[in-house]
């Protein structure tokens, strides 16, 4: 079953005919998890690596049963593309695009919520349930099927964590890159609630970093026992001076707000296991999972 995506998810790519679209199709196909459709207005009736392209999401949905979208459309056409996916009521819509203006993000998140569409991102690498569904630009060779969920504010570190778990013999249920921006749709606490409700997930690994209040709200869920599955977290940015904008728009602490130290303290107090290095995660996870049996 997993969460967000599963074997029943039928993925379409909006913006499939661009350079990035073709790259993602190739990656998904090599993983044996190709999309069922693509959408590029004006390119309907063509194919990309055997994937049919449609002019509208409605045509793609009606003719292929597509029920989730990975939006690769550049910032200029992004708003319209996401609103189309939301209007069609697709279950999950993931936005890979980086650099989305805050006003547009706020609008899209509000529209998706009103339509009960789960919006992942922007600035998200996507979602992967290894061996079952790929809704993103992720190299599936680094992931293996299993029962550990990964929730990450960094795309690259999600792959790195998955590789670290895989190397230790720990497979993954759903891996979700929630995006590095400060304004995102599905956030860390919301993703954690989905993992808690998923019968195929036994434990959760979190990659957090400075900025936003996501880790603090995650800690509150664990402290209040709303989340009871084992959670292991690595929080990056202990040595990153505050008040500075780094790569991820969300990774900015101000004074004592949003610091790694504050997040680590809150999570640790709630009962989350804190990895000093992300490479410690498998050891902590194995111990936590055996303790919870």
């Amino acid at each position: 079953m997993t969460f967000l995506v599963d074997r029943e998810t039928r993925v379409l790519l909006q913006g499939i005919t661009g350079q990035l679209g073709k790259f993602v199709v190739e990656m998904m196909s090599q993983a044996g998890l190709p999309p069922v459709a693509g959408v590029t207005p004006g390119r309907g009736g063509t194919m990309v690596d055997g994937v049919p392209v449609f002019d509208t999401v409605r045509e793609a949905r009606e003719q292929t049963g597509a029920n989730a979208s990975l939006v690769l459309v550049p910032a200029g056409g992004l708003r319209d593309a996401v609103l189309e996916a939301v209007d069609e009521g697709l279950g999950t819509v993931a936005l890979m695009v980086d650099g989305v203006p805050v006003g547009i993000s706020l609008e899209l998140i509000a529209r998706a919520a009103a339509a009960q569409v789960t919006l992942v991102g922007p600035n998200s690498p996507g979602v992967l349930a290894p061996g079952r569904c790929l809704l993103g630009a992720l190299d599936p060779r680094r992931f293996t099927q299993g029962d550990v969920a990964i929730i990450s504010r960094s795309g690259g570190m999600m792959s790195t964590l998955a590789h670290t778990l895989t190397s230790a013999g720990l497979g993954q249920s759903t891996c979700v890159g929630i995006g590095g921006d400060s304004v995102i749709g599905l956030d860390m606490p919301a993703a954690l609630l989905l993992a808690q409700a998923d019968p195929d997930t036994r434990a959760v690994v979190i990659f957090g970093e400075i900025g936003t209040t996501q880790e603090e709200r995650t800690a509150a869920l664990v402290a209040s026992r709303v989340v009871t599955k084992p959670v292991v977290a690595y929080i990056a940015g202990r040595a990153a001076p505050s008040g500075i904008r780094y790569s991820h728009a969300g990774a900015q602490s101000e004074g004592s707000n949003g610091t790694a130290a504050g997040k680590i303290a809150a999570l640790r107090e709630a009962g989350v296991l804190i990895a000093e290095r992300y490479t410690d995660v498998p050891r902590l996870l194995a111990a936590a999972m055996s303790a919870s049996c």
Binding site: S152, R153, S154, G155, G156, M157, T160, G180, F207, E209, I210, A236, G237, A239, A240, Y246, S247, H248, A251, Y278
Partner: peptide, 9 residues
């Protein structure tokens, strides 16, 4: 990588 850059610091 944005996350990696934090890890490196």
């Amino acid at each position: 990588g944005g996350g990696e850059s934090m890890v490196v610091l």
